[in-house]
Structure formats: structure tokens, C-alpha cells
């Protein structure tokens, strides 16, 4: 099959970008979207032109590196898959496919389709961990955890941090990402002791990074390659409010003034 990609080219964060049309010829419909970009880049390189920069790593839907707004939807037309697992059979022969980078103030463009998602790392550094050493893989049932809680935590843990939630949100809000990362740890006994500090710090870092505010429209969840539910956002709101109220009434040791 043959398609045309109308792809965003931009040198760096400072420069103006523009769309460029490129033909992708003789594709196997079972190629992934990224493999199609490889074909185009091969042609560009052979012609002595600058290949299209795009982010990728595992190419099996688990690392969260691939991105791209494909025809106006993060990760392309299918639901529940990342760009690396979107296949050309999801398109028609002769299609013109519009490919843009994820756009948000907090995700500045590095080049072409690659944006800098390190704001997510900053959020993780501020609370997406537990401080104690939990040791190496423990005996499976050493700490009993109910099935329902374990399943919920697994649902949240499915987040690969790709940023599709931010890309899809009309407000570039990172609430789905933060709620999944905080929710996963807050649900489990190892994460509970630091729950309040975690939500307060992660939300503060999220606000500082320049993400927008959630308007409860759930475009994030619809675009998420791991189909993470907006229920985690509600949980984050709840945990955040509780932590804020508790922090008002918390006694502090006299040495801390």
C-alpha cells in the first residue's frame, strides 16, 4: 500500500515549524506506523535529506517512548495501543496521514516529532517512589493484599508515561498521569505511609511545570494506550483534599518551630 504523510518538521524549540508531505511507497499493511516512518527516513537519507526525528525505543508498547499525534489523535486511530503497535492496516491505501508532535507548553519540541517529556520525570522525582528499601523481590504473599486492591494498583501501574493524556487533553493537563502514578503507590501498603506528602508534592510539581487544569472531559482516558480510567483522577482529587486538610491540623515537632 502507499500513503502520504503530512508530517511536522521543526528544527528545535526556537524555530518555526511547518508541514512537509512525503510519500511512503510499497508498504506492507502489517508494518507498524514506526516502520512506515523508517521506510520514509530510508528514502530521505538516500536522497541526502534530513530524516524525520521521532521518538521510539521498545517498539512493543511498554516503554512509553513513542508519541505522535496521528490524524488528530495521540497514537493513532486504534484505542488501547501505542504508536509502535499501530499498524498500517488501520489506514487505507492512498490516505494522507497528518502527523504532529505532542503539543504542550510543558512538553517543548526538541525536533520534528520529538518533544521533551522530562516534566514527567520531575513529577516522579517529587513523589513517585517509596523511600524505604523494600528489598529484592519479596515472597509473593509475605504482605497480604486483597485482590481488588492489587488489581486496581495493577491498572494504575499499566501507565507507561507516554504523555498521550497531556497530548489529548484540551487543556494539556497531566492529571491522568499523576493520578495513575500516585494512585498505584497510594493503594499499596508500602506506599501508604507517604501518601499525603506524595500527592501534595506531585501535584505541586505538576502545577509548576505548566500543565493545564482538568475539566473532567476524559479525553485523556480515551487516548490512553493503556486505557487508564479517569476514576484515578477522582481518587487523586480526594487524596489531595484529604492531605491538604490533614496538613492544616498536623502537629509538628517543637524543633521545627
Amino acid at each position: 500500500m502507499n500513503v502520504t504523510i503530512r508530517v511536522w518538521r521543526q528544527k528545535n524549540d526556537q524555530s518555526e515549524g511547518r508541514f512537509e508531505d512525503h510519500e511512503a511507497k510499497d508498504l506492507n499493511p502489517n508494518m507498524s506506523f514506526l516502520e512506515m516512518l523508517d521506510v520514509v527516513n530510508e528514502d530521505l537519507t538516500n536522497a541526502g535529506k534530513d530524516p524525520i526525528a521521532f521518538a521510539h525505543d521498545c517498539r512493543e508498547g511498554i516503554c512509553g517512548t513513542c508519541s505522535c499525534m496521528i490524524n488528530g489523535k495521540p497514537h493513532g486511530p486504534e484505542s488501547g495501543v501505542a504508536t509502535c503497535q499501530t499498524y498500517m492496516r488501520s489506514f487505507q491505501d492512498g490516505d494522507v496521514i497528518v502527523v504532529e508532535p505532542f503539543r504542550a507548553k510543558a512538553f517543548p519540541i526538541i525536533k520534528d516529532l520529538v518533544c521533551d517529556r522530562s516534566a514527567f520525570d520531575s513529577i516522579m522525582h517529587s513523589g513517585g517512589f517509596i523511600s524505604i528499601r523494600t528489598g529484592s523481590a519479596p515472597d509473593a504473599n509475605a504482605i497480604p493484599i486483597g485482590k481488588e486492591v492489587a488489581d486496581m494498583a495493577m491498572d494504575a501501574a499499566a501507565c507507561i508515561g507516554c504523555g498521550a493524556c497531556v497530548a489529548a487533553c484540551k487543556n494539556s493537563s497531566a492529571m491522568l498521569f499523576v493520578s495513575a502514578k500516585a494512585g498505584q503507590l497510594n493503594l499499596l501498603p508500602q506506599g501508604k505511609p507517604e501518601k499525603d506528602a506524595r500527592v501534595l508534592n506531585m501535584v505541586a510539581t505538576m502545577d509548576e511545570a505548566g500543565f493545564g487544569n482538568c475539566t473532567n472531559q476524559y479525553e485523556c482516558s480515551a487516548a490512553c494506550p493503556k486505557e487508564i480510567s479517569e476514576e484515578f483522577i477522582s481518587k487523586l482529587n480526594r487524596d489531595y483534599l484529604a492531605a491538604s486538610v490533614k496538613s492544616v491540623f498536623k502537629a509538628v515537632p517543637s524543633t521545627m518551630g
Binding site: F19, M69, N71, G72, K73, V98, E100, R103, A168, K170, Q217, Y218, E219, S221, A222, A223
Partner: peptide, 10 residues
């Protein structure tokens, strides 16, 4: 803004 953005669910 995006050149084209779909509304998925809102």
C-alpha cells in the same frame, strides 16, 4: 494548537 485534533469523548 494542533492543526487537527479529534474530540474523542468529551
Amino acid at each position: 494548537d494542533y492543526t487537527s485534533q479529534q474530540t474523542l469523548r468529551a
